[in-house]
Amino acid sequence: MTNTPVLDIRDYRLNFNTFDGVYHALDGVNLSVGKGESLGIVGETGCGKSVTVRNVLGLLPSPPAEVISGEILYNGLDMLKVTPEQMKKIRGIEIAMIFQDPMTYLNPVFTIGTQMTDVILAHQKALAKGEKKSRKEARAHAVDMLRKVHLPNPETQIDRYPHELSGGMRQRVLIAMALSGSPKLLIADEPTTALDVTIQAQILDLIAELVDDMGLSVILITHDLGVVAKICDNVAVMYAGQVVEYGTIEEVFGRPKHPYTEGLLKSIPHPGRPPEELFGIPGFLPNLLNPPVGCRFQARCSKAMEICGTPAPNRNNAAHDRTVLCHLYSEGFDDA
């Protein structure tokens, strides 16, 4: 780490207790984001990328979720142990979150303005610092935030209902709402997946701009490797509830080490180059109700060895701040 982490997830294990048995959703996840850094988490459906960050803000109902071990440290405070009272002072004020489908997270029967001022006033109440903002001041703050996310004509748009806005504009509103409490950390869960590419490009530019302006730390979750490469410093590749590879974008995308990362990169057709042969990854995700012993990728891995039936060592190359979860590197590795 170049600087002290804002958020540090350590050896995080989480199960879901279902009627079919215990679903081992996360198995020893280690991640951290430094101040002003942006971390991308990529992986395919069901790899646990969303589940990993949900509990940072206590958003997973328990039961069925059950934390087995680990801690999520936000500036030293374990988010898995905070009281509801403490959580109120963190949600939206220290850490904010935006989601994939902006329409689902806006209430269709209230105007944008009402919803934004409610959020701003709730932050005020949670902090309960001396003077309170009036609704009018809160509204002015909301207009400022909308201007910051480049929503055209914020003074009039604020009185609109969500259905009157386009998908891209709704996502801008959600970002404005999330940032209205001036958080230090923004968690974005597939923020552009529901949008068209030309609109996606606008929103990604906006996020990158806000990160610079406000000195935000960002965790961006996506299945689109292109999106991560565009705006993140570091990337964590997840597979079946584990982080299999972590490092800077240059390292991981330029010199992938883990066979899964390699396979993933060879699976995507490149929009900027004439077609080359594609290699899918044969087989399926393991059933996490009964996960395989040892490496979770072994059944689909072209380089699987006998030793893969035992848990893979997590190799750390401190010099490059890079980890790979794979027996191939049990002797360690150096980045040449």
Partner: peptide
């Protein structure tokens, strides 16, 4: 130009389109 490329160190390409469809 709007499609993000899955590789590090992308040069900034043209400005994204403004406005909605």
């Amino acid at each position: 130009e709007a499609v993000p490329l899955p590789e590090p160190g992308q040069p900034r390409r043209g400005k994204p389109l403004v406005g909605d469809i």
